[in-house]
Amino acid sequence: MNRRDFILSGSKAAMGLALASSPLISVGKNRSSLSILFTNDWHSRIEPFPMDEGRYQGLGGASKRAALIERIRQENKHVLLLDSGDIFQGTPYFNFFGGKLEFELMSQMKYDAATLGNHDFDNGIDGLVRQMPFASFPFLNCNYGFEGTKLDGKVLPYKVFKKGGTRVGVLGVGIELTGLVSKKLFGNVQYKDPIQHANDVADHLKNKLKCDLVICLSHLGFEYKTDKVSDITFAKQSANIDLILGGHTHTFIERPIEVINKRSKVVNILQTGWAGINLGKIDYEADSYFEDQKAQNCMVKIS
C-alpha cells in the first residue's frame, strides 16, 4: 500500500515512511503480525467536523475511517479493532437517532469490542440497551455491577481473541458514574474498584487462559491533578496488563506512554484524542508469543 497516505502528526510522517521502507519490517510482515487499531470518545462524530469549526474542521469522519481500516485489513489479516467508550453524544445524530447509526457503523467497520463511557449512559440504561441490537461487537467492562438492571448479561468482563498464533485478552474498565451522569440515567449500575477488578481479570487472562497479550480498554481518563484514579495510577498498580487504550480525557498521545507496573514490567498507555480525528494503530510482530516485555518495549519508541 502507499504509506504516504498514512498521515502521521508532524515530523513523524517521515518516520512512518522510514519504518515502512525498512526491510526488517517487511520481513516481519510475512510472519505473524498483529495490528491493534483503536479509537475513543468519538462522540457521534459521524461526519468530519464542519468547515466552520476552526481547529478541527474537516477532520475525522466515519467513512474515511472505514476506508483506512479497510486498507489496513487488506495489508494485514490479523487486526483487532477496539474502542474505549463515549461513542454517544456530541452531534445531532445522537439527538435524533439515539446512537443507532454509531453502532451500525462500528458493526460495518467490524469492531471487535468496545467499553462503556459515561456518555454512553446519556439516554439512560434503556437508551443504551435499545441500541445494543445494532452492535455486532461485545461491550466489555469488569468494574460495573449490572445486577438487577437491564444491562445484566449484556456486558462481558473480558473477551479472548485468537489472532494467528496469538491469544489476546481484552478487558474493559469504566469511570465512576456518580457526579458525571445523573443517577436517574445510570440507575442501579454499581461502580467497583477498577484496579482490583482489572487485576483479577488480567490475572485470569494471562495465567489461566494463557493470553499472550492483555489489553485493557479504559474510560478512566489519562491523568488528573487530584488523586482520582486514572490510567497512570491504574497502570502503576496493575499486573498482567500490557497495554491500556484509554479515553474520557480526550488526550492526544502520539507515542506510547510507558509506566512501570507493580511487578516492574512496562505497561503502555495510548489514547487517540477524540471524535475520530485519529485512528490509533499499534503493531506487534511475533512468531507466536508475546512474553518478553523488554524486547517488546524497546521497540515502542519507533514512530
Binding site: I7, L8, K12, K64, A67, E254, Y284, A286, I302, S303
Partner: peptide, 26 residues
Amino acid sequence: LPYTAKVGGQLNTLDSSWKESSKRID
C-alpha cells in the same frame, strides 16, 4: 522464546489529505 517485538504506535490523522472514503459507509 519465540522472538517478540512491538513495532510501534502511531496516530493516523483523518485529515483532508486522506481522500479515500467508503461508498458502503456513505
